[in-house]
Design a binder for these strands. Sequence first.
DNA 1: TTGTATGCGTTATCAC
DNA 2: GTGATAACGCATACAA
Lengths: 334, 334
Amino acid sequence: MRDVARLAGVSVKTVSNVVNDFPHVRAATRTRVLAAIDELGYQMNFSARNLSRGRTGMITLAVPELKLPYFAELTDEVIVAAAERGYTVLVEQTGGVHERELEVLSSDRRRMTDGLVFSPLGLRQGDAPRLEVGYPLVLLGERALHGDVHHVSMANVAGARAVTEHLIGRGRRNIALIGSYDERGASAGSLRTQGFLDALGAADLRHDPARTGHALEWTRTTGADAMRRILDAGIEVDAVFGLNDVLALGAMRVLFERGLRVPDDIAVAGFDDIEDGRFSRPSLTTVQPGRGEIARAAVDLLMDRLSDAPRHEPGTEVVVPHRLVVRESTGQGY
Amino acid sequence: MRDVARLAGVSVKTVSNVVNDFPHVRAATRTRVLAAIDELGYQMNFSARNLSRGRTGMITLAVPELKLPYFAELTDEVIVAAAERGYTVLVEQTGGVHERELEVLSSDRRRMTDGLVFSPLGLRQGDAPRLEVGYPLVLLGERALHGDVHHVSMANVAGARAVTEHLIGRGRRNIALIGSYDERGASAGSLRTQGFLDALGAADLRHDPARTGHALEWTRTTGADAMRRILDAGIEVDAVFGLNDVLALGAMRVLFERGLRVPDDIAVAGFDDIEDGRFSRPSLTTVQPGRGEIARAAVDLLMDRLSDAPRHEPGTEVVVPHRLVVRESTGQGY
DNA sequence: TTGTATGCGTTATCAC
DNA sequence: GTGATAACGCATACAA
């Protein structure tokens, strides 16, 4: 930059002004500086700028696992949303493991960025104090965890209730629940379970715990395993609600292996609306949680906290509405 | 850090030495410094370190799209491999668009990191000069593009040939090819197409171009579209080779919609071994390209180029072996 | 509108 | 082994 200044016959300050296009620079001067920059092939040093400014222009996104389609699609959208605002995203994978989630909150790597968008899985009530971090943080999930942190949440209860009501409306009475694990707290799992139970209650149905297939991780494999356990127990089942799509897809695979027809014998529904569900056989009924809006809202909230004049109160919560997507897996047969 | 030094009664340099655990620090001094660090809750400023060291400890990974399962899984593994070596990954999405791929090579965002692992899609022969970048670069794909750049490639030709031979071995003679688009160059598409044609040639079979379903993007949607076009043309087909798994899954979905049985009427195979293929109905025969090894090799090569004493020659190529994975979609029926 | 001087927090180069 | 001091390259008061 010093060289550029010399060549253009101006001071470093002026070059800096041009590069950051400050308002008060004479057109002639600017042209001269730009020419010099071009001639010397000058490129700004970000480390120096970051040191001086005290900011990095990067944010961290922490998700359980990138290979889970929901988080891959979410990350995609967060990257795009951040890019629109001139920010770069650094992706962190926690595996949904409690210890590693806490670690992310205070890790060195996190400190290389200006803020964090965090999609936790294993965080518990007792972890609330750990969320008292000294940097901009936006949580993806329910607000129950901590009052002063920005939250972006999806309509977990309402969505699960809607899809369950849909199953009931299709005449199903013995609905298996795949994926439930920790009923306490405000995890997506417990909230969706809540919505599920609400719908059953409203229809005067009781949920037989034997029709619950637990799954610590939410993957196709664990969904398949849970489905197998339920079928092996010999309990009557005429529908399956997977707490997310991959669980449902894993379950559906097992139904196929056991020679059960979907939806004729057993209807299946999931949650998340990942792309696979549109092409599976049969295609999967699900809840579209508004992934795009979530990503955008999260980045917006973080940008707001990063700005020097935040508009949002601490602990702002944005709830994104859901949409029920009915497909073949709960259809009339095919 | 200055405060820490003062509290510990040592110089800044000594604190720096302790933090970077340099060899020559007396144990007593180290303890004292660590105590001071702890008491003051000192945390190092990365921007300052980066400026001083001239490195950032971050690398960029550029992929077409994160929501494509193959790249999601690849990114996952690259992040893990980089983390093992103390590096953080910054993910860039090119959409596979030529212009944006060129842009990534010289973008400001790229310059925030020490190097680039790049998985191009639309890069052409003529772009070779653009790969003459002044920073460590590792390309994922064939070496044809540029001689002096490190490459990590999968066994595209051999893998495609193996899976095609498998289809022929199952008695299939009229194999449709889904996804071929640009036959020139050394893209994954043209190489896999090559392997496909090699296998046919070796079996004295000819490929009817009418059985080729072009697809610019490789997604489930484009795979489905291509399959529809082939079926609508009324050409005889007893097998389908999707140039990757999502194309094959999209095609399989269409076969299902048309009432064709897989594999009885039409066998289907793909390439990539993404997780979906293990749970699809039927499960998908495919080629496992060694994704984990690719990620690790790429990061290793980049680390080597980043080190002050590189062991590898410029233009080193690592070829990762493939493995054929036979599943239901080419089985004996089910 | 533009220039000068100083600070940002570390690492590196020397002496000691 | 440890300390003083100069870069590192840019931003920002403040002065002109």
